[in-house]
Nucleic acid binder design. Structure first.
Lengths: 339, 339
DNA sequence: ATAAATAAGTTAAACGTTTAACTAAATACT
DNA sequence: AGTATTTAGTTAAACGTTTAACTTATTTAT
C-alpha cells in the first residue's frame, strides 16, 4: 500500500527507469510492445509519479494559486466558489494542484502576500473577483503568469477571463424592449466595477440600437455594494419618480430580488405591471416568487477556462495578456412578460 | 527575482549547505554567531526552502487534503468555507499547504477518490461535514491520518473535531427555561445526523435537569434537510397543535428563520408571544428582524483545531482517534425574552 | 598529561524524477 | 559491402533538500 516508485515499475517491466518516464510522457521513441509492458506494470503497481520529484527536476511546483478576498469567498452567494470548483476540476487535466487562499479585502502595503507566493511555490496565479490595487502592485514584482477572472485591472499586462457583460446587458434589455417596449429602467451599484458598467453599457446599446433614447431618470446608480437592500431602495426611488416604469433591468440578481420585494410590498404586480430581469443566475432565483428571469453566467466554465489558459501559458512559458470572453445566456422565467 | 537555493545562502554565509539546513531547523548544534550569519544571508537572499526538494527527501508531500461534499461547499451559508479558512490559516504554522476538493454528495462505489489521494500526494486528510459512508469505506484502505470535522462517523478509528452540540442545546434551553419557564418546543431535521440529535439531547437534558418532563408533542422532527422552508412548516405544525408555545429552540438558524417567518405571517410576536433560539450563528442572524438569538459555533476555530491536531498526528507519525470538543457560546439578541 | 566528552561544524548519500547525450541494433542508401 | 540513418532503448547527471556519520577543535575529567 506504500507508494511505488518509477524503479519498481522499471524492475517489473524489465526496462530502465528512463523508459518508464518516456512511456509516462508518451514519448515517440518507445515501441508499442515496450509501452504496453510498462503500462501494464504501472497499472499493476498503481504507480503515480511523485509530485515532489517531478517538481524538483522541472523546477516547477505543479501548483496554481487561487486568490480572492475573504469577503468574496465568504459571501453567501457562492459565485466564486463555483469558479474555484471549475479551476479545481480542470486542474485534473493538466495535473496541477490548486491552492486556495484569501487575502484581506482591505489589503494594503503592510499586508504580506500569500505564503505560496513568497515561497514561490506556485507556477501561476488565478485571481478571482475584484482585489485591492495595492495587492496587484505587489504582484507586479513576480514573474509567473497571472490570470484575472471576473475582474480585469486596467493594466493590460495580464490575461483576463471575463463575463460578456455588455452582451448580457444587451440581451436582457432587448428582451424587455420586445416585451414592454418603453420605460425600461436600470438599477445598479458599484459602478466603478467594470462588470457593472459594462452591463449598463449593454443596456444603453440595446436601447439606442432599437431607436430609443437614454432617459437618465430611468437609471438609478449608487456607489454602494449592489445588494438586496440597495435594490429595494433603488426601486423605491425609481417608482417615486415615475409611476409608469414597465420593466427593470437590475445589474445583478441580488438587487433584482430587493427590487421585487419593494414591488411586492407596494402592490406592483410582477410581471403584469412591471417586468424584471437580473444578472448572474444565483441559486435563489428559482426559489423566489415569481421565479426571476436573468442572465446566466456559467461560473464553473469561467474557472475551467481560466485553468485551461493557465496551462497553456505555463506550457509555452509565456505570461500572456489576452482576454477571454465567456458568453452568457438569457434565462426567461416568470418575472418577465412574454413577448 | 528567481528563487535562491540553499547553495546561494551557504555561499554567502561561507558555510556548508548542511549548516544552512540546520539553522533553518533551529538545530542546537549551531553556534549563535553562525546562526546569525546564516539568518542574515537567508533574509538578504529571501530564501525559502523548496517544497518539492523537502518533500522528496522527507517522503512527505507537505500537503493536507480538505474534502467535503459539493453541496456542502456550495451551500449559501458559508459554514464549511469558514472551517476551511481556519485550516488554511493554521497551515501557515506547520508549513502545510491545503488542497481543497469536493466529492459528489452521492458518492458511491463507482466514484473515484480525489486525485491527491490516488496519487498519494497528501500527508493527511481533513473531512468536513457529513460524507457518504461509501466514501469513508474507500478511505479505510489508506494509511494517512484522517480527521473529521463537524461529523464523526460511528467507526471510532479516526479523530474528530466536533461542536459541543449537547452543551449548546443545553445552554439554549436553559436560557429559555429561565425566561419563559414552560412550553418550550424543539424543531429539527435530519435527526440521523449526530449533531442534530445531540442538540436535541441537550434540550432534553436541560428540561429534565430543571425538573420538567419531556413532552413529545413539543418536539417536531422531520427526516428532511433542516432548511428555512422546513422550519416554516415545523412551526406551523407546532402551533396548529398547541397555541400556547412560549419558546422554540431550533436545531439550526435556517429552521429558526423559517419558523420566525411563520410567526410573522401569523401575528405571533417575537419574543413577546414566543421566544426563539437558533444554532450556528450564521451571517444573516444579525440582519433578520428581530435579530436572532443563537448558539455561536466558532467555525474558523474548528478549522484551526483540526489543522493543529493534524500537525501533531503527522509529526508523531500516529493516526489518532481522539475527539476534540469545541465549546459554543450563547448569543442573546432580540428574538428572546429577557430573563 | 592523557583520555574522554562535548561542541560545532562538514561530507556525502539519498529521495524520485527528467532529459541530454550516448549506444547498439536494424534498416536504408550508394 | 560499406556507410549513413533511423529506431529503440540506456546511462548518468541534475534538481534542492535532509541527516546519519564523520571530523576537528575545544573543554572536562582523571
Amino acid at each position: 500500500m506504500t507508494n511505488s516508485t518509477i524503479k519498481d515499475v522499471a524492475k517489473m517491466a524489465n526496462v530502465s527507469i528512463a523508459t518508464v518516464s518516456l512511456v509516462v510522457h508518451d514519448h515517440a521513441r518507445i515501441s508499442k510492445e515496450t509501452k504496453e509492458k510498462v503500462l501494464a506494470a504501472i497499472t499493476k503497481l498503481n504507480y503515480h509519479p511523485s509530485h515532489s520529484a517531478r517538481g524538483l527536476v522541472k523546477r516547477k511546483s505543479g501548483n496554481i494559486g487561487f486568490i480572492l478576498t475573504d469577503d468574496h469567498f465568504l459571501r453567501t452567494e457562492p459565485f466564486y466558489t463555483h469558479i474555484f470548483i471549475g479551476t479545481e476540476f480542470e486542474a485534473h487535466e493538466s495535473e496541477f494542484y490548486v491552492l486556495l487562499t484569501t487575502i484581506d479585502s482591505n489589503f494594503n502595503d503592510d499586508n504580506k502576500l500569500p505564503r505560496f507566493i513568497l515561497e514561490r511555490n506556485i507556477d501561476g496565479i488565478i485571481v478571482a473577483g475584484k482585489v485591492p490595487s495595492s495587492f496587484i502592485e505587489k504582484l507586479n514584482k513576480y514573474h509567473f503568469p497571472i490570470i484575472f477572472v471576473d475582474y480585469w485591472p486596467c493594466t493590460k499586462k495580464y490575461s483576463g477571463v471575463l463575463v460578456d457583460n455588455v452582451n448580457g446587458g444587451k440581451l436582457a434589455t432587448e428582451y424587455l424592449i420586445k416585451s414592454v417596449n418603453k420605460n425600461i429602467a436600470f438599477i445598479g451599484g458599484d459602478i466603478e466595477h467594470p462588470s457593472i458598467s459594462d452591463r449598463l453599457n449593454g443596456y444603453k446599446k440595446a436601447i439606442l440600437d432599437s431607436g430609443g433614447s437614454i432617459n437618465e431618470r430611468l437609471i438609478d446608480i449608487i456607489e454602494d455594494y449592489p445588494g438586496r437592500t440597495n435594490g429595494y431602495n433603488a426601486a423605491q426611488r425609481l417608482f417615486d419618480n415615475n409611476k409608469d416604469i414597465k420593466a427593470i433591468f437590475a445589474c445583478n440578481d441580488a438587487m433584482a430580488i430587493g427590487a421585487m420585494q419593494y414591488m411586492k410590498d407596494n402592490g406592483i404586480k410582477i410581471p403584469d405591471d412591471c417586468s424584471i430581469i437580473g444578472f448572474d443566475d444565483v441559486v435563489s432565483d428559482d426559489a423566489i416568487e415569481p421565479a426571476l428571469s436573468t442572465i446566466r453566467v456559467p461560473k464553473m466554465e469561467m474557472g475551467t477556462e481560466a485553468m485551461k489558459l493557465m496551462a497553456h501559458l505555463i506550457k509555452n512559458n509565456i505570461k500572456g495578456n489576452q482576454k477571454v470572453l465567456i458568453p452568457v445566456e438569457l434565462i426567461i422565467r416568470k418575472s418577465t412578460k412574454r413577448i
